[in-house]
């Protein structure tokens, strides 16, 4: 029996002024799958996932998440969907006026008024344990390294127990070893929390490690898709150039 995809983007168009960034993107992600979107800078990778959580308004097209077209939802209904999606920003986007503990507690306190302080603390520690950074609980974001910021960002995402996690350039700006650690962390999170992942990157090692399937965006449309090996051996020189 064929199951409905957890994410389905149909004919997505998005422009900024006269610049047409997305020109009819079509993609689906199945439950438990890990899809990587590759593409050059400015190709519209981040715009695609920002449309998916309603940060940007699509010009045209359908954005179905959990079977619901989010372009037709009001603010409250959209927020209910957003609570089932985690979003790891490129720069981590930690609230810099709050400590790590407060960063993690912030979302939880807003949406779970019934939780006691002890329960909140327990969940914070559990999320930090998942990213291996329990000792950073009292630190401020300014005291963290680039890799730690990404890990804490992921912990903050995990605390709401999302079914889907969208990663925007999770390894950007990191050295090779830290980037590999982040890729391994993404894999371990997928395994532990059984999440569906949509990973935007131009780090080919990250794509190889984390993706079940890879899509390549060119000129605002999906240019190629397949497994890592299929794309690496593609007859298209431009596609192969990503893997050199």
């Amino acid at each position: 029996m064929e199951t409905q995809p957890i994410i389905a983007i149909k004919n997505l168009w998005k422009s900024f002024g006269k610049n047409k960034v997305l020109r009819g993107i079509n993609l689906t992600v199945d439950k438990g799958e890990s899809l990587v979107i590759l593409g050059r800078s400015g190709s519209g990778k981040s715009v695609t996932i920002e449309c998916l959580v309603g940060l940007l308004e699509a010009d045209k097209g359908k954005l179905e998440v959990f079977g619901t077209d989010i372009t037709k939802l009001d603010y409250k209904a959209l927020n209910r969907i957003r609570l089932r999606i985690g979003f790891l920003f490129q720069g981590g986007a930690l609230y810099d006026s709050m400590s790590v503990r407060e960063n993690l507690a912030f979302t939880l306190k807003h949406h779970t008024a019934h939780l006691s302080e002890i329960e909140i603390e327990k969940q914070i520690l559990e999320a930090l344990d998942s990213v291996g950074l329990q000792e950073a609980i009292d630190k401020m974001p300014s005291e963290l390294s680039g890799g730690m910021v990404k890990r804490i960002g992921l912990a903050r995402t995990l605390i709401i127990k999302p079914e889907i996690i969208l990663y925007d350039e999770p390894t950007a700006g990191l050295d090779t070893i830290t980037a590999k650690e982040i890729s391994e962390l993404i894999l371990s999170v997928q395994k532990k929390y059984k999440t569906t992942s949509l990973i935007i990157t131009h780090d080919i090692n990250c794509a190889k490690m984390t993706g079940n399937r890879i899509m390549i965006i060119k000129d605002g449309v999906i240019h190629a898709q397949g497994s890592y090996d299929e794309l690496m051996n593609s007859p298209d020189d431009w596609v192969r150039s990503f893997f050199v």
Binding site: G54, L55, Q90, G91, A93, L94, Y95, D96, F106
Partner: peptide, 21 residues
């Protein structure tokens, strides 16, 4: 300056995607 900094470092977007207005 505070909100501007939060805006350009995606902290406001992070709030938005966490379903916090």
């Amino acid at each position: 300056a505070e909100l501007g900094s939060m805006k350009v470092t995606s902290q406001i977007d992070a709030m938005e995607v966490s379903a916090i207005n």
